[in-house]
């Protein structure tokens, strides 16, 4: 049998991230410089402590039961090895294997636009005042696969209010970091960089929308959008922008990367909707990672009760 479901993995069984990355680096070095060279580079790595040692730090969280699903979790290994993060490459394995050089700390986020308190805020300034929550959400990719992930984050709305958006703030736009030296996928213009996403202000303020800093109780691995990313569980995964360096309150609907790339395929709203197919493939079903058979896709990814009201009176075929 070719198809094997990975066994559930305890955090204690998982190889330390740094060790894991070193192994990748070791393999790369072997192919580049031969065995002797690889041994040399790994030896220097042992002497000089790596700067990315922060990744994988335990976070203290409270569980949010109100919004969490009790569905079976997608194993940690799958969540952190099968990713779309084009800044590291377009293959699903690229983000995990090519993000070793990325430095998620120190980090700051620029807050700009229609608000009373714009400025550049350190990661700590943004996160510290809030209680981290664990929220188990479904994630539905536009490519018709899905996962169930225990995120760690804070309601985005709580953060945004601190910057006192004005009445002109109708939308929020987000931008991903652009570091060609650490993100090899940026060498090619597969999308128009930097990656940009956006939400209507009421979507951004919705209690389900979270600013995410971790998964499985630890800080985010680089491939999952370290150190700070968005999670909007009722929208296709590409809306949940990773490694955010800029948040801007805008009056007009912001431009978004996939919409620029293929406007008739990826709309601004991108709500999960089995009734509106992607022009090239069906969105009626999805394969939950680890499952053999596909399952029906739920409208708003199953969060309709909480979010359908946001779209009252809107034609979701037109506003896909």
């Amino acid at each position: 049998m070719l198809i094997k479901t990975p066994d559930p993995i305890k955090p204690s069984q998982i190889t330390d991230k740094q060790q894991y990355l070193n192994r990748r680096q070791f393999i790369r070095d072997t192919t580049k410089f031969g065995m002797a060279g690889a041994l040399l580079t790994s030896a220097t790595g042992l002497i000089l402590p790596a700067e990315t040692a922060l990744a994988g730090t335990k976070l203290s969280t409270v569980k949010n039961h109100e919004f969490s699903t009790d569905e079976e979790l997608t194993p940690y290994d799958a969540v952190t090895s099968y990713n779309n993060f084009y800044e590291f490459g377009t293959d699903k394995r690229d983000p995990a294997s090519r993000s070793g050089k990325f430095k998620p700390q120190p980090w700051s986020v620029a807050i700009d636009g229609e608000c009373m308190k714009p400025g550049v805020y350190d990661y700590e300034d943004i996160i510290k005042p809030h209680q981290l929550e664990e929220r188990i959400y479904r994630l539905r990719c536009v490519e018709a696969w899905s996962m169930v992930i225990p995120w760690v984050g804070i309601p985005l709305g709580d953060v945004l209010k601190r910057f006192e958006p004005t009445s002109r703030a109708k939308y929020v736009s987000f931008t991903t970091v652009m570091r060609p030296d650490e993100m090899p996928g940026l060498r090619r213009d597969v999308l128009r960089w930097p990656y940009r996403e956006g939400l209507r202000i009421d979507e951004a303020m919705h209690p389900l929308t979270i600013l995410t800093v971790g998964l499985y109780g630890e800080t985010l691995p680089n491939q999952n959008g370290a150190p700070i990313r968005l999670i909007v569980p009722w929208k296709y995964g590409f809306k949940s922008i990773k490694s955010i360096v800029k948040i801007e309150f805008t009056h007009k609907q912001p431009k978004t990367s996939w919409n620029i790339s293929a406007p008739h395929e990826y709309g601004f709203y991108a709500n999960v909707n089995p009734e509106v197919d992607h022009p090239r493939w069906s969105q009626g079903k999805e394969r939950r990672i680890g499952d053999f058979l596909k399952r029906e896709t739920l409208k708003f990814n199953g969060y309709g009760e909480q979010v359908a009201a946001l779209y009252n009176g809107m034609d979701l075929r037109k506003h896909y």
Partner: peptide
């Protein structure tokens, strides 16, 4: 396939 090395989405 045998060594479970076909990504998280083997199909």
């Amino acid at each position: 396939g045998i060594t479970n090395n076909l990504t998280a989405n083997p199909i």
